[in-house]
Nucleic acid binder design. Sequence first.
DNA 1: GGCAAATGATTTATCGATTAACCCTGCCGT
DNA 2: ACGGCAGGGTTAATCGATAAATCATTTGCC
Lengths: 348, 348
Amino acid sequence: MTPKPRASVTLKDVAERVGITSAAASMALSDHSRISEKTKEAVRNAAADLGYVPSSVGRALRNQRAGAIALIVPNTSQHVFGHLYFTHVLTGISAAANARDVQVLLSTTADTGEKREVAAYERVVRSRSADGAIVTSAAVTDEGLEALVTTGLPVVLIGNFPYLPNAISVGIDDVAASRDITNHLLVAHGRTHLVHVTGPLDHQTGIDRRLGFLAAVSDRGVAEHSTVVDGDFSEESGYAAIESLLVAGVEFDGVVFANDDMAFGGLTALKEHGVRVPEDVSIVGFDDFGLSRLTSPGITTVHVPAEEMALNATERLFDIIAGNADGPGQQQLAVRIVERESCGKHAE
Amino acid sequence: MTPKPRASVTLKDVAERVGITSAAASMALSDHSRISEKTKEAVRNAAADLGYVPSSVGRALRNQRAGAIALIVPNTSQHVFGHLYFTHVLTGISAAANARDVQVLLSTTADTGEKREVAAYERVVRSRSADGAIVTSAAVTDEGLEALVTTGLPVVLIGNFPYLPNAISVGIDDVAASRDITNHLLVAHGRTHLVHVTGPLDHQTGIDRRLGFLAAVSDRGVAEHSTVVDGDFSEESGYAAIESLLVAGVEFDGVVFANDDMAFGGLTALKEHGVRVPEDVSIVGFDDFGLSRLTSPGITTVHVPAEEMALNATERLFDIIAGNADGPGQQQLAVRIVERESCGKHAE
DNA sequence: GGCAAATGATTTATCGATTAACCCTGCCGT
DNA sequence: ACGGCAGGGTTAATCGATAAATCATTTGCC
């Protein structure tokens, strides 16, 4: 069977049915004042009858704007950030884009060499398939990001990028949040020997959460009792970090994990060694993307409003596309600590 | 030293630099035989110098194809299917699309009234922003789906749609899988009084998994000892289902949940009532999208290859777009049972 | 009555890429 | 010397939508 040429209704079809030019039909549909009410009505009816939907492509070419925004996901992110993060981000972006009738283009970088990566970043952009882009937290070593920002294309980053002072971003204050939740263990629960399992230190989140931890233990004068172990946000690295400390005989009564996945991994390791949580050791995580609610005990964590961040970032992007460049350069949303069982709840 | 690529380098810019027409440049880049090797070389160099990237819009208009496929997500799915499902689907689609250098358009339906829903389905399609669409499991009551399929637009569905015999789909055999895992409880673990907590019965997955359960208990002659309780795939409904059975004093030694989320909810309810899993009651779930690995005990479940389904569906879609309509109409991938602790592992 | 303004369309041009159709120059053979 | 014919381009048209410029009719006004 021959591939049936799908009858796509074009503006010309609508115009012909009414007996006018396609130009007139265009003006009629956009309620132009030079078209009579009678004709407008006729065009609207014909359009409805035929099921006319403007070609996004034709319109895009003429208007020099795609009517779409891209969500760019560096290949590294997929490994570094859990799956749950993306779901929240996607939800937020979709909500904002739907409200404006704009399409969302998902641009995950194919995991090939670096040279291609830069190209992939730019291809979406330079092929004009999108009017702007949202980039989720990329590695600090990602050279393509700066290139992207400097092309002049509207870009909003999700996360913090102190090394790109001109970039517009929406994030949270990781340093402050990490300090707060560390202080929570120190003050509210009287813990004194803390461990921090870091995220990947080539990501700003990893760097900042580590700094927050260090600031807190330093402020409270327990820096010499604290240990920092490197992790990479994966459940396995959390497990391995705790396992190695227990085997080495390091003493600690509280652990600040840089995210929930690692906290879960660490929790498993502690359980396996007969260490009770939260009786013997208090642990806290970071993110609250869903996992920390499901474990037992539930993990006390910092709630990161990923969906709201994405929503704000998208709104901001639309502003910039519309030429509204003023507004906060680096926006930071508020976070809150969600207390569950893993830290030892307040006696109350 | 390269002049900073201006926001938009067009083919004309490349041609002018070489001193030829844009038409010739186009032919040069597509290696047309009428262009001399010398000119081709010059054009390629100029294109590279200027950082020329073909405008997807211009090309789309001319070629009458968008170079993009859409992932259509009915608004209901977001609630019905967990977050994790989408991640797997997205990964699979992206992989296939990236390999072909095709964009992925994410079309989540705004959660407004029904009338708009149909429109949203069709808008992506009729605005020609995508050359084809992948639709993830929609409700059987979804009237927009059939409309979409009958527009003639290439569409591949993920899941099973027996009521749309002409639609092309990639799914699994839910009935057989559900029967198998039910038999696993009956045969391998000697359970005799089973409960099935169903998914939403306006979704084919819910319907089929229920049928599989009923077939198994009937085959083994334990139908009169079995109970079916309605759920909706949510953790809460799993909890509520078990809670109500326990309160009602119903006797059972095995539960087949239609998905893992409900199994987790049910597990919580059982624990709270002091029922030991798997000693007193064996439970099994369905999906294995990630959750069942994390609980304790880990939940024995049917591994649904969501990513592979999405990948196959996308490849299939490309075939259809290319005019290759032959191939299996309703493809079903193999599943396997993943045994964890919740069913009581084989003594071995 | 005649010129200007209002009315309601129609042409025309444009966006970027592509392709069918046409057009120069040399060079060949006879 | 001239038809033929390749090589190597160039023009022009197309895809769909739409803004700007233009062009017919009426109608308004003195």
